[in-house]
Design a protein around this nucleic acid. Structure first.
Lengths: 255, 255
DNA sequence: ACTCGGTAGATGGTATACGATTTGACATAC
DNA sequence: GTATGTCAAATCGTATACCATCTACCGAGT
């Protein structure tokens, strides 16, 4: 009864195929395997996952509703392209909801949590020398996740989560594109933790967290507008997606 | 309820069936034809809309992703039941995003817009005598919609919209359950418009709008906790859904 | 009476099949 | 050389069919 040939699917959690498809696609989007603009072809995905197109369609509907993919009738779905305007909007919105979530979570954070956050920030500080945007971004998310995790409002946490996911398409580049932003970010992190530890007014914490994110946004916009011609090249070296994006935006096929 | 500018398909091309199914179901949820807990049976809906179940399934996936319906594998979908905790969370979240949206929109409001808002609030004031929760709520939404409509952040507007939709299941009862809340609400509306007209600090506007909503929430919670036994009856007379909800929660069929 | 177990019907899950639409390319005319 | 028309391939949209699973009901055993 241990492991006969039959009854291969794990009896414990037989997730539906559409669920599997959803997770599979989402995973590839999250991990940048499918960059912005990548065409999601039903048949191909179904084939690769060894299922029919129907579950894949449903998965894509969900992703569409979540704003992760765009959809055009009779043409198909592609990973949502985050243009500058959307990036700005999302970043702004994330600042708002994350700020409030952090403020709501602040009184519920244990000393251990705060120490953990400090630890991560210290790691980020060390990373400043041999700078690795990928790793830095990952730590950044960890840091903030700790701070807003105890927020009792599930809705709000969900929104924060979605904001992060939406940005995942190009958030690597944020730090790499903006000179000096990473250093400031680390310093602001330390301040934020200190405020929480000191039991500051929730509204102050909220605004501090919000401003922290908005400053990154503003730095991005400044850098973008001052050096318009140069940015393209910088972005190219930082994110390997750019090339494929350009290639896939025009034609119908994926490379 | 009515989504903002985007997500409106060009009228020229006939909408896909899954799109039609989506709108059809969503409309019934918005208009309380399908109350919380109502079972959405694929076959029945497909039959009524004269299509196969496949498009209906996709529509339900979208609704699921939007949080309007809950789903259980091999059992089916039902209109999301908003329990007290969810109501609180949603109301709180709505206060946050709506507050910021209102603040962002404030400098972009024309004198005409403000007059329009005033007009609606005056109507609400008149309604206070012959009180009609349904109408009052509708006007309330109109009022706030005017105030946050020019907010340039589409993401944020989308979140506000979703918040309103999520609450539509029981927001009628908010005003009817809470004694005196409607009066205060009208007064706060007037204050809010005046602040905007005077060009107040955006942060002040934001917090005023937020507090306005949170006060409704707090009033609801107070009323709920002080008179636990009585509230149930009041709610019953206000919302006809309650009976059917109880009936459908246990069994699998809808009445 | 109560519980357990089995069975039938209802409903969801998925595969397959076929029609509809779009796209890209090639050929032809100007 | 450019524009336009035609066609085939790719892909999406939907219907139908069939299997899997759940629920409700009913009868046997205690």
């Amino acid at each position: 009864m241990s492991s006969p040939a039959f009854s291969e699917p794990p009896a414990s959690a037989p997730a539906s195929k559409s669920e599997r498809a959803y997770r599979w696609i989402r995973d590839r989007i999250d991990h940048h395997r499918y960059g912005p603009g990548y065409r999601l072809v039903l048949g191909a995905i179904a084939d690769e996952l060894q299922m029919s197109v129907v579950p894949v369609r449903e998965a894509i509907r969900r992703l569409e509703a979540e704003g992760l993919v765009t959809f055009e009738r009779n043409v198909g779905a592609r990973v949502a392209v985050v243009d500058e305007q959307e990036y700005v909007d999302t970043m702004q919105t994330l600042g708002i909801v994350e700020g409030t979530a952090t403020a709501m979570a602040a009184p519920l954070l244990s000393p251990g949590d705060l120490r953990q956050a400090d630890l991560i920030n210290r790691q980020m500080h060390r990373l400043l020398k041999s700078f690795d945007a990928q790793a830095f971004t990952a730590l950044n998310q960890q840091f903030h996740s700790i701070l807003f995790a105890p927020c009792p409002n599930k809705q709000l946490l969900d929104l924060v989560d979605r904001g992060w996911v939406r940005l995942s398409g190009l958030r690597d580049s944020s730090f790499s594109v903006i000179p000096g932003r990473a250093e400031h970010s680390v310093a602001e992190h330390a301040d934020l933790v200190e405020m929480i530890r000191a039991g500051a007014d929730p509204l102050d914490i909220e605004l501090a967290a919000r401003e922290h994110r908005w400053r990154t946004l503003n730095a991005f916009l400044d850098a973008r507008h001052s050096a318009t011609t140069n940015t393209a090249n910088t972005a190219n070296t930082a994110s390997p997606n750019t090339a494929s994006t350009n290639a896939t935006t025009r034609g119908r096929k994926n490379p």
